[in-house]
C-alpha cells in the first residue's frame, strides 16, 4: 500500500484547473497554427491569428483562455494499492477546484439546482468520475468545459444494424446543428457502445486525449478519418464564417454493448478545449 495525503490531491486539482484555464493545450495550439498555414480564406486567417494570439496572452498574463471557465469534470484513475490519508477524498477534490477558481479569478458558473438556479459562488461541485485501476498511483485529469459547446452535444440510440455511414452522418449532423454557435473549429469526442450513460461518458472522456494521437484501434482510426474528412467539407470554419477547417481533431472511444443497440454520443467541444493531467 502507498499512502497519499488528501492535501496532495487537493493541491494537484487546484494546479491542474489553473493550468488548463491559462495554457492552451499544445496539441490544440499546434492544430490552430497548422490550420492558419493551410487556410486560404482571408477572414478565417484573421480569426485564427487572433486565436493564436489569445493563447499567447492567456499564458503570459495568466488570463483565462475563455471567460467561460466551465463546468469542471474530474477524472480519477485510482490505483487499488493507494490508501488516501488525512481526510475526505471527494472533499479534497472539490476544495482544489474551489481554490483554483477563487485564486485564479476564474468565473463561477455553477448553480446549485438546475431549477432554482442559485450560483454556488465557488464553481463547485465538480463532476467527479472515479475508476479503480491496477497499481499504486493516482492519475488526475481535469476538463473544465464551456457550456456553449456542451449545449450542442448529443446522443442517439442507434440500431445495431445501422451502417458506418449512418454513424458518420449522425456525428456530422450534430456538428452542423452546432454551426457557428459553439466556437468552431471544433474538437469532437465520440463515444460508441456501452449503455446510454457509458457512451456519453466515453464521448467526453475522448476530449481529454491529444488530438494528434493515432487511435490504436484501426477500425476506429478509419472511422475518425472519415468523420474528419466529411466534417471539413461542411464549410463552417472559424466563427462559422466559412473555411476549410471545421474540425481540428476527433477521438473515438468504444465499449462492448448489447445485441439490440448501438449508442452513439457526440461531445462537441470548442477550439479552446481545456484539460490537464497529472500522476501522483
Amino acid at each position: 500500500m502507498r499512502n497519499i495525503h488528501v492535501k496532495k490531491i487537493k493541491n494537484a486539482v487546484r494546479e491542474l484547473c489553473l493550468e488548463a484555464n491559462f495554457n492552451l493545450r499544445k496539441d490544440i495550439l499546434a492544430a490552430l497554427k497548422k490550420a492558419l498555414r493551410q487556410e486560404k480564406n482571408k477572414r478565417s486567417k484573421r480569426i485564427l491569428i487572433m486565436l493564436v494570439e489569445n493563447a499567447v496572452i492567456a499564458k503570459k498574463e495568466r488570463r483565462a483562455i475563455c471567460q467561460d471557465t466551465g463546468a469542471v469534470s474530474v477524472y480519477i484513475s485510482m490505483g487499488q494499492g493507494v490508501r488516501v490519508t488525512g481526510g475526505d477524498f471527494e472533499k479534497a477534490i472539490q476544495e482544489g477546484v474551489r481554490e483554483a477558481y477563487r485564486s485564479g479569478h476564474l468565473r463561477k458558473s455553477i448553480v446549485a439546482s438546475p431549477i432554482k438556479r442559485k450560483n454556488t459562488g465557488t464553481n463547485t461541485p465538480a463532476v467527479i468520475h472515479t475508476e479503480i485501476v491496477k497499481g499504486e498511483k493516482i492519475k488526475i485529469t481535469v476538463l473544465p468545459k464551456g457550456f456553449g459547446s456542451e449545449n450542442k452535444s448529443s446522443i442517439k440510440m442507434m440500431k445495431p444494424t445501422d451502417s458506418e455511414k449512418e454513424i458518420i452522418s449522425f456525428v456530422t449532423e450534430t456538428a452542423k446543428v452546432a454551426g457557428a454557435d459553439a466556437c468552431p473549429p471544433y474538437i469532437i469526442g465520440v463515444g460508441l457502445g456501452g449503455t446510454f450513460d457509458k457512451a456519453a461518458w466515453l464521448s467526453k472522456m475522448a476530449l481529454t486525449i491529444r488530438i494528434d494521437r493515432k487511435n490504436p484501434r484501426p477500425h476506429l482510426r478509419k472511422l475518425e478519418e472519415k468523420i474528419l474528412k466529411k466534417m471539413n467539407t461542411l464549410n463552417i470554419g472559424p466563427m462559422g464564417l466559412g473555411g476549410k477547417m471545421t474540425c481540428l481533431g476527433i477521438n473515438a472511444l468504444e465499449y462492448p454493448t448489447h445485441i439490440a443497440g448501438l449508442p452513439v454520443a457526440v461531445n462537441i467541444s470548442c477550439h479552446a478545449t481545456r484539460s490537464a493531467s497529472k500522476i501522483l
Binding site: I47, M50, N54, R63, C66, C270
Partner: peptide, 10 residues
C-alpha cells in the same frame, strides 16, 4: 470572436 476572451479583455 468566441473563445478569444483574453485577447478581447485587453
Amino acid at each position: 470572436v468566441g473563445g478569444a476572451g483574453a485577447y478581447l479583455a485587453k
